[in-house]
Design a protein around this nucleic acid. Structure first.
Lengths: 332, 332
DNA sequence: CTGAAAGCGCTTACAG
DNA sequence: CTGAAAGCGCTTACAG
């Protein structure tokens, strides 16, 4: 029952070398020159015995595992965020790291978790107490802040992308001739980083294009809330009415389209609607949703490099340019 | 920099006992009677020093960690599955287990992963090679099969629920007077377990109610595919047309509603549509979607108990009755 | 170029 | 009731 784990010692015996040599070969420690012939013998034996080093032993010895802990926020991951995590998982896998995710409830300390796992690095996708971050770093864990709530975000690609999304939405609407825009934003606290960034991006684009700032309406994702937001936009003199809305996300865009139907309003003629995130349901909206696609690849690759550099104690690579793209369907 | 980890030895010193005693107290080893006074001193010292045992050391000693590895399938997790994982995470957390998830690409062996982590238990939410499962079990890891593809599913609550969902859909439609039903099912391989179960459930319910078996159309989640499926249902003599459709999921229901609009057909008058999963976007469909809610709590609690029992080597608890519920809106 | 040995921080039989 | 000690499987200075 309790299967016998294959250890380095057994590999050593099979390869007729010492256990230390096995370790050297398997970890590519070049500081000790191992003759090719010996190397091969060891590799061969390891393969034959189906040897996998004990992560626990290595972690105990080194003081940290090769796990990368991705801390997920305490709200349902949307399609975009899931894709992001999946992409990152792939990248990390290829770098011999073991990415692993864990959703953390608001307020629950990460401490027990990271001390238990002793990861090589932690990627925080949720806010975490200042003290906790420092505690991790003090004990040698590299901490990457997916969302750097309390600092300038110019260097954080995940956040930088947020403003880009808002700008793109506005640019497309402006190109279609719209001059008076609305922004439909969430109130839920967990969405506020992203929504604030997207609104900032939208405002900046409006400024660039000589438009008025978008009229922002905040609401939660309920039929009543969105309907009320719509009325606030609509209950003004006709000449002042907005003609297009940037929705914070495709979900909000769906909700707005639904509220518009309730009022006998249609997109894009009465109000053009553009979403963000490009969820799979987008083509099935009525009318099919125009939206922004995130183009995760660049971001994900970059973040994997940041993590690796952090673990190795190297300088972080420069942030690459991001290119979220427009997906034009019929709603705007 | 390399922060000094607090070890049991330091706690022992502070509490003026041996390190072994610290271990006994902290692990509640009752086989050795520790006087309350000593216990308190140890507990106090541990708290004061902010001691967290090294999982690596414990794992090395015990041959396994207290991590529960949840292996996610290689496709985007839907809303329902995400909720399930989140719920399970909460439960496991409370049992002093460390749930952690990892998506695994099709064909990539789990071996490296579980050998590295040496989890107390693994919950497989994806198909995995027979040999891999056995290898895990042989080395003492308890393996729970979230999806038992190759065996009877009567005992697997996750799968049992699948048939229940299909039955519920049919029962609601029948109660509304529908006699000729369609079932809109995916072709994507990853959805086939669930869709097969739901169809089985629907067929069983039809049999019970004296209806013909539902006319099943398989398609992928694209506008063209779903439109074609709709036409196949519709291009028959009027008297033979179906009057209602069970969609495999809310996503498919959205797609069908969209295709129906394209043909000038409306729900529920021309065709009533019922989905499954109760995604947040449901209320914003046109018309708002009638669907099935999974009621995750019972399932999640049960599964957590199964895992705990497996780890402790106890008998698994009996499967509790599940109660997915109807969410009636306007589409059916 | 290779091996013997220390030590990472635990748990648990065993001896006092 | 409590402590000294072995040992889990590694990595890595150190000695040969």
């Amino acid at each position: 029952m309790a299967g016998k784990r294959v250890t380095a010692t057994q590999v050593a015996k099979a390869a007729q070398v010492s256990q230390a040599t096995v370790s050297y070969v398997l970890n590519n420690k070049s500081h000790t020159r191992i003759p090719e012939e010996t190397r091969q013998r060891v590799l061969e034996a390891a393969r034959e015995l189906n040897y996998t080093p004990s992560a626990a032993a290595r972690a105990l010895r080194l003081g940290r595992s090769n796990i990368v802990l991705i801390v997920l926020p305490d709200w349902p991951l949307g399609y975009a965020m899931s894709g992001f995590v999946d992409g990152l998982t792939d990248q990390l896998e290829q770098m011999d790291l073991q990415p692993v995710t864990r959703r953390l409830k608001q307020g629950v300390p990460v401490e027990e978790l990271w001390k238990a796992i002793m990861p090589a690095a932690v990627l925080l996708l949720d806010r975490v107490a200042q003290g906790e971050r420092q505690a991790m770093e003090r004990s040698g864990v590299f901490v990457a802040h997916g969302l750097l709530w309390d600092a300038e975000h110019t260097d954080n690609p995940l956040l930088a992308r947020g403003t880009l999304v808002g700008s793109l939405q506005v640019e497309h609407l402006a190109a279609r001739g719209h001059r008076r825009l609305g922004y439909l934003a969430p109130v839920a606290e967990h969405d506020q980083v992203f929504s604030r960034l997207r609104i900032e991006g939208a405002e900046a684009a409006c400024l660039d294009l000589g438009l008025d700032r978008p009229v922002v309406q905040h609401t939660d994702l309920t039929a009543a809330g969105v309907a009320a937001a719509l009325l606030r936009w609509w209950d003004v003199p006709t000449a002042q009415r907005i003609t297009a809305v940037c929705a914070y996300s495709d979900d909000y865009a769906f909700a707005l389209l639904s509220a518009m139907r309730g009022q006998g309003l249609a997109a894009p003629v009465d109000i053009a609607v553009i979403g963000a995130d490009d969820i799979p349901l987008g083509p099935f909206a009525d009318p099919p949703l125009t939206t922004i696609d995130h183009e995760q690849d660049v971001l994900v690759t970059h973040l994997a490099r940041v993590l690796q550099a952090g673990i190795d104690g190297d300088e972080p690579p420069a942030t690459p340019p991001l290119h979220p793209g427009l997906v034009v369907r019929s709603s705007a």
